Amino acid sequence: MQFPDPLIPGRLLRRYKRFLADIALGDGSEVVAHCANPGSMMGLAEPGSPVWLSPSRNPARKLKYSWELVEVPGEKEGALVGINTGRANALVAEGLEAGKVPELAGYAQRRAEVRYGTKSRVDFLLEDPGRPACYVEVKSVTLKRRPGLAEFPDAVTARGTKHLGELAEMVRQGQRAVLFFLVQRGDCDRVAPARDIDPTYGEALDRALSAGVEILSYQCNLSPAGIALDGRLPLAV
């Protein structure tokens, strides 16, 4: 996924009200950017961090910029993290289209935002004659607290727990269900549930695995030019 317009570099001043961030640009001006991330963004919102913004093409939009990337300290050098959770489904869709997810290849039809469960919508429904449908739920992963380990969630997520139960129910009905962890950073080599942050989610994940829900984890290759799906990561339960 290439960004449609060049990203604008800046420095984070503060993130507040969950969806707003004050950014200092290189010319000395300050702007308010939309922060499309409902999580805690643990470790990603330190004042002074280098950030990149995308400009809006909609002249009627109140906020003219969206926060896309942040650079965080790494073991050897700075690492880029994609904080815009709204990009996750598009990145996975692009990866599926390009055949970068062999575990989900070969389906004749892919639909997005299909109703299922209890007042929920699954991110992708893959269908093909002669085999069970595949329900795919995408989760954007940005948290890293230990070297090489990506974790989800970064805050308590009742919604995420609900989705795990609904995926397990699809398996019980004879369908296929996949939880897709999209790690929007390139400095991790494995993924694990953050059980200390949300023990209920960790327990729900264990039940989902026992029920037959599959877990796929892929990381991303990020730059100010764009983001692309990269290699698969193992799950460290």
Rank of each mutant, 00 (worst) to 15 (best):
G174S: 05
L7C: 03
R185Q: 11
V114E: 06
E169V: 08
A225H: 15
S54Y: 09
M41T: 03
V122K: 09
E214D: 12
R159P: 00
T142V: 13
F180E: 04
S49G: 03
Y107P: 03
P47G: 04
Q175L: 00
A192L: 05
S217N: 14
G174W: 05
S29E: 08
Y135V: 01
R121M: 11
P193L: 14
D187K: 01
R207Y: 11
T200G: 14
A211G: 08
Y116W: 10
E127T: 12
V141A: 07
V183C: 13
A33I: 01
N58D: 15
P50F: 05
Y116D: 04
P55R: 10
A168S: 14
L12E: 02
L233R: 06
Q173M: 06
V92W: 03
C188H: 09
R15G: 06
A194T: 07
S54H: 13
V81S: 09
A108I: 01
A88T: 04
D123V: 00
L209I: 08
A88R: 06
R57D: 11
L167Q: 10
G160P: 08
A90M: 12
F180Q: 02
L182T: 05
A33S: 09
A155F: 14
N37H: 15
M41Q: 13
V183T: 00
L149T: 12
R185D: 04
M1W: 10
A98C: 09
A158F: 15
G28I: 05
S40K: 15
S120Q: 10
A98H: 12
G28V: 02
E94R: 12
S56I: 00
R14Y: 08
D230N: 08
G78L: 06
S29K: 09
D198K: 13
A45M: 12
P6Q: 07
T142N: 10
N58T: 13
A133F: 15
L126C: 07
A236L: 14
V81I: 12
L167V: 03
S120P: 01
P73E: 00
G117L: 13
F124T: 04
E97A: 14
G10I: 01
R18P: 03
I83W: 05
E151N: 06
N58K: 13
R145I: 06
R110K: 12
L96S: 01
A33W: 07
E137K: 10
G165A: 08
A21L: 07
E103F: 00
R57Y: 05
L63D: 04
G78I: 01
L80K: 08
L126H: 12
C188Y: 05
P73C: 02
F152I: 00
S29V: 00
P50V: 08
D189F: 14
P199H: 02
L164V: 00
E71D: 00
S217K: 04
R146G: 03
R146W: 06
P59T: 02
R61Q: 13
H34Y: 15
V136N: 12
R110V: 15
Y135F: 15
M1A: 14
R111S: 12
P129H: 04
G117P: 11
K100H: 09
P147W: 01
